[in-house]
């Protein structure tokens, strides 16, 4: 399925160490981040091709959210380089990166609390690279809210939303920027199984519309079903990268992330879950 949807440049998903492939959309070269001398991300090399949908997994504190912060620019790099469309964006402030088409969600949702849901989304379309007028931004916001299923709550104040709706709002705000690269930080955490299914469908649709997606998720069902490729972080190091099945079979991943006991269960469950979620995706697009 992904082969059909992906733009031609990514028709052959790059293996780990993708330097020899076409120019990646996003490339991290030797990226490190220290907090008070403690490493959160260490010497990370990682690339995402245009049109890919890549999952990032790892135990708590592995450096996943830090990585999103580094790519979106909300955290300054300690060392290394981040390239986007071949440009060095390592020193650009977050708003310039947003302007270049990088949008993110926040793991701990941070809406503009005092504003309405509609205004929250509008601001994404008003500023950044779209730079719409207020009237146009309002329309664009309505369209995005429709898409994520928040249209009925457009007039709510953002801090009146439920957890699930706040996650939707995060996504809607990011989408309002019309991103090329979407960084999703645990947008499914805290959702019910039904809501997870909806979210997966939505992400497939977003990916299908040509957006390159980087997903951090703890919900294994989701990440395995969605991702074309998975990167595993553990204590700030990349310990595995590749197609989901291959990564899950990796002994280091099993030890570091899943633990021996859960590994077997997880693998047996995966066989049943994956086709189901793919079917969902097709229905959504049809």
């Amino acid at each position: 399925m992904s082969d059909v949807l992906s733009p031609p440049t990514a028709s052959e998903p790059a293996e780990a160490g993708s330097q020899q492939g076409p120019q990646p959309l996003l490339e991290l070269r030797g990226v490190s981040k220290f907090f008070d001398g403690l490493p959160a991300v260490k010497q990370l090399d990682f690339a995402v091709q245009r049109g890919e949908i890549v999952g990032i997994i790892g135990p708590n504190g592995a450096g996943k959210t830090t990585m999103i912060g580094l790519i979106s620019g909300s955290l300054p790099l300690s060392s290394g380089q981040i390239r986007y469309r071949g440009l060095d964006i390592s020193r650009l402030p977050p708003h310039r990166r947003a302007y270049l088409g990088i949008a993110r969600t926040f793991q701990v949702t941070q809406p503009f609390k005092g504003l309405s849901v509609r205004e929250n989304v509008m601001i994404g379309a008003l500023f950044g690279r779209r730079g719409l007028t207020q009237a146009a931004a309002r329309e664009a916001a309505e369209a995005v809210l429709e898409r994520v299923g928040l249209a009925a709550k457009a007039h709510f104040r953002a801090d009146q939303l439920t957890v699930a709706d706040r996650k939707r709002l995060e996504l809607a705000r990011a989408l309002a920027l019309e991103p090329e690269l979407l960084l999703l930080d645990e947008v499914m955490a805290g959702l019910t199984p039904t809501e997870v299914e909806q979210a997966i469908a939505l992400m497939r649709a977003i990916h299908a519309s040509g957006v390159t997606v980087l997903v951090i998720e703890h919900v294994m069902q989701a990440i395995m079903g969605l991702s074309q490729r998975i990167m595993v972080l553990h204590q700030g190091n990349k310990i595995a990268e590749g197609p989901p099945e291959q990564v899950l079979a990796d002994q280091r991943v099993i030890e570091a992330y899943l633990g021996e006991r859960y590994a077997r269960e997880q693998q047996s469950r995966l066989g049943t879950v994956r086709p189901v979620s793919q079917k969902e995706g097709k229905e959504e697009q049809g």
């Binding site: 708003h95 310039r96 941070q110 809406p111 609390k113 005092g114 994404g124 950044g128 690279r129 920027l177």
Partner: peptide
């Protein structure tokens, strides 16, 4: 005022 980090992520040169 409401969230500087989000504002910046939304493309606003805060």
């Amino acid at each position: 005022r409401e969230s500087e980090e989000t504002a910046e992520a939304m493309g606003i040169p805060t």
